[in-house]
């Protein structure tokens, strides 16, 4: 059968064509509404609550939501039941893995079984040292209630830290309240903190004073053009700005300024001093020849 003949045989009458078009529009419209709803919900669901932490090696949140297939294999291989899959109704994208530090923190297994279990690489298989994990960053959010900040020696967050003296150090400060004691301030270092959350879990307060926050919330970011002068100087082996020029003061002849030499200095030019020690000699200046 030629194409033309086929077309003729199948040529629809206008009523059925109209029905077809209406049907298409109805279905298409409904599906478009559905897509809009799901799309908007997806944007909403992309905002992860601050206390929900992703497993070690998780890609940045936006990439993670595309890479994770919500299978829960990481949850199954977590030996400490730290990880959970978000249930519908929870404020974390449904089916994605997370943990809450204050409930069960990450124990930082050396073999990182959760990452190995991930079939898609939503947890980056390139992570082979758990110390390189950055699940978040511990931040001492409440200095007013932290016991160490009040001058006590609680130190629990410091002692429990798996990277003690690297991720959390105690920095000694003067205790201005008592005037005679020291305070040991727990200080988190982002180059070593993995965000495991053991400090937040261990904090003895009713509500933890130290909390693991997502890196995006926990960290500031320098202006990209900022440079630390002292570092640039060290890298360059010397000052990068023009060497200091001696300042030139615009002073009358015979006068100069030297700070260490007690400021303004009149140079003695033998009688050329405008005002001498003896006012009379000034008054008489230039009168000598008239006698």
């Amino acid at each position: 059968m030629s194409v033309n003949a086929k077309r003729q045989r199948k040529a629809p009458n206008s009523a059925s064509r109209r029905r077809f078009l209406v049907e298409m529009a109805r279905t298409g419209g409904g599906v478009a509404l559905f897509a809009l709803g799901v799309g908007m919900y997806a944007r909403q669901a992309a905002s992860l609550p601050a206390q929900a932490l992703r497993p070690p090696g998780a890609l940045a949140e936006a990439d993670f939501l595309g890479a994770c297939v919500r299978c829960g294999l990481c949850v199954r291989d977590c030996p400490y039941d730290t990880l959970r899959l978000a249930k519908p109704g929870e404020p974390v994208a449904t089916g994605t893995p997370y943990f809450t530090a204050r409930e069960v923190p990450c124990e930082m297994c050396e073999d990182i079984p959760c990452v190995k279990a991930c079939p898609t690489g939503a947890l980056d298989h390139g992570l082979d040292d758990i110390d390189d994990a950055r699940m978040g960053l511990a931040v001492l959010v409440d200095e007013e209630n932290c016991l160490n900040f009040r001058g006590l020696r609680c130190d629990v967050c410091y002692r429990i830290c798996p990277s003690i003296d690297k991720a959390i150090t105690l920095e000694m400060q003067h205790n201005a309240r008592s005037g005679m004691h020291a305070m040991f301030i727990p200080t988190v270092h982002s180059d070593a903190c993995t965000g495991c959350g053991k400090c937040e879990k261990a904090c003895v307060l009713e509500e933890a004073a130290i909390k693991v926050l997502p890196l995006k919330l926990a960290r500031g970011e320098l202006g990209h053009h900022y440079r630390w002068g002292w570092e640039e100087k060290r890298k360059a082996g010397g000052s990068l700005v023009t060497p200091d020029q001696p300042h030139r003061y615009n002073l009358p002849e015979g006068e100069r300024y030297d700070y260490e030499g007690q400021g303004l200095i009149m140079e003695d030019k033998g009688g050329e001093v405008p005002f001498g020690d003896d006012p009379l000699s000034t008054l008489k200046r230039g009168m000598e020849g008239r006698r």
Partner: peptide, 26 residues
């Protein structure tokens, strides 16, 4: 959206996953 948006509402995986990982409002 760059995310697996359908999985937010998919009844199939929601039921199956829910039976083993917790149903929630599923």
């Amino acid at each position: 959206t760059g995310s697996v948006a359908w999985e937010l509402v998919n009844p199939v995986s929601m039921l199956h996953r829910g039976l083993f990982f917790g149903m929630g409002l599923g």
